[in-house]
């Protein structure tokens, strides 16, 4: 990234890590695979490298990508009450708020449960695939990774899954409810999304983006 020779202060900056949560400053010592470095003051995990984490994340991301597409399209829940049947997909659920100002809510729901998770997966793949293959990083890898991290709290697939459980309890005395294939896809998806987030060590990714050759 730097097109000038490294001065003394740059050398020092590389050795220092600052806790993003409480601003405590530490001299860096890279933990081994499987170890983790955390802030002594506020206990935030700073670095947690894992062996082959990149490969695992890519595998999980690909699975998530297909599952999101599948879960969005296939019927998700079916309902049956006295001969009246109805099957809905996740897109139907997201677009349930129709008419007037409710359309905004529809779009927001669709974004939170489908498009933001989808975007995050694609950004993750775009950033990580070249790194794992030891290729030069994509041209927009840096803004892409930053966007992906900024979107993290807005990706609400797992919350939607719990919402399904609550809705089922509410409807179950009114009608017979069945699960479509998408329901199970979504269940797996939630587990994978959580796994993906726990594999990811932000520091390692940034480090690799900056120093493609080392580590």
């Amino acid at each position: 990234m730097k097109d000038f020779s490294e001065t003394r202060s740059d050398m020092m900056l590389d050795d220092i890590i600052v806790c993003p949560q409480c601003d405590a400053v530490y001299r860096m010592k890279k933990p081994e695979h499987g170890e983790r470095a955390s802030c002594q003051r506020c206990h935030k995990v700073l670095i947690a490298p894992r062996r082959n984490a990149g490969l695992h994340i890519i595998a999980v991301s690909l699975a998530v990508l297909f599952l999101i597409i599948g879960a969005a399209v296939f019927p998700f829940l079916t309902i049956d009450a006295a001969g009246n049947k109805n099957a809905v997909s996740i897109l139907d659920a997201a677009l349930a708020f129709s008419g007037g100002p409710m359309i905004v809510l529809s779009l927001a729901t669709a974004a939170l449960i489908i498009f933001v998770p989808l975007l995050r997966v694609m950004l993750t793949l775009y950033v990580l695939v070249p790194l794992v293959l030891d290729q030069p990083a994509g041209r927009y890898a840096i803004p892409a990774f930053r966007l992906s991290e900024a979107l993290r709290p807005w990706s609400m697939a797992e919350i939607f899954a719990i919402g399904c459980a609550v809705a089922l309890v509410k409807v179950s005395d009114l009608a017979q409810v069945g699960f479509g294939p998408a329901f199970w896809m979504f269940g797996i998806l939630v587990v994978l999304v959580i796994a993906q987030d726990s594999f990811m060590c932000k520091w390692s990714v940034w480090h690799r983006l900056e120093h493609p050759k080392t580590s």
């Binding site: 659920a93 919402g163 399904c164 809705a167």
Partner: peptide, 10 residues
């Protein structure tokens, strides 16, 4: 999300 699911389903 519960409201969304209920309104789409029922």
């Amino acid at each position: 999300f519960v409201v969304a699911i209920l309104s789409a389903l029922v």
